[in-house]
């Protein structure tokens, strides 16, 4: 079913909307959640939460890209679930490795995030991504948005894990230098 038809079901408050969303986007959202949570049961619950949030948000929202919107929702919910699980000392998964890699680009100190600073940093990251060749941009986002493993990225690109690690290392260094040049001290 096309997205506009699924959205119409939400707006008509018909429960088939959830069934159709699950049928079309469950694999995609599950992949995002699984990369973060590394637990099948938690992933299933997280994706179910996503459908519930979507049901509550549409209407009034009408996402222009339903798949991307659902993926972002899943990612946020999975991160919150992972954070709660970590508080119970059962975090796990590859997320700490991802965080540690990204810390090379920033100060590493958790600070109070100001809305203006976040927006400036986000805009700088957008410029950084926009100027990257497509292949590098995709690699960066597959790792740091989708949370794909090094092994998976290597398989996808037809490269060795060492080559993928080197490419990601260079991208992180470039982002760090770019943010500094932009005067963004985070």
């Amino acid at each position: 079913m096309e997205d506009r038809d699924i959205l119409a079901l939400y707006w008509q408050r018909r429960e088939e909307a959830i069934r159709e969303t699950d049928q079309k986007y469950s694999p995609y959202c599950s992949h995002i959640a699984m990369n973060i949570l590394a637990d099948r049961e938690d992933t299933e619950e997280c994706v179910s939460d996503t459908w519930l949030h979507a049901w509550n948000a549409i209407p009034p929202q009408r996402p222009s890209r339903l798949g991307v919107w659902l993926g972002k929702l899943t990612r946020n919910l999975a991160l919150d679930r992972w954070r709660a699980r970590t508080a119970e000392k059962r975090g796990g998964g590859e997320l700490p490795v991802l965080f540690s890699e990204l810390e090379e680009c920033v100060s590493g100190e958790a600070g109070v995030e100001q809305t203006l600073e976040k927006r400036q940093t986000l805009e700088a990251i957008q410029r950084f991504l926009g100027a990257l060749p497509r292949e590098k941009r995709v690699l960066f986002l597959r790792r740091y948005y989708f949370g794909d493993s090094i092994e998976e990225l290597g398989r996808r690109a037809g490269r060795s894990q060492g080559q993928v690690k080197s490419a990601l290392f260079r991208l992180r260094s470039q982002l760090r230098d770019f943010l500094r040049e932009e005067g963004i001290l985070i």
Binding site: K72, L98, E101, E103, V106, G111, T121, L122, L141, Y145
Partner: peptide, 21 residues
């Protein structure tokens, strides 16, 4: 900003980049 905060911020990048990836 720490790694987790940057990871969360990356969740807000342009939909077009996400769709491309």
């Amino acid at each position: 900003m720490n790694g987790e905060q940057l990871f969360r911020l990356l969740g807000q990048v342009d939909d077009g980049w996400i769709e491309e990836a």
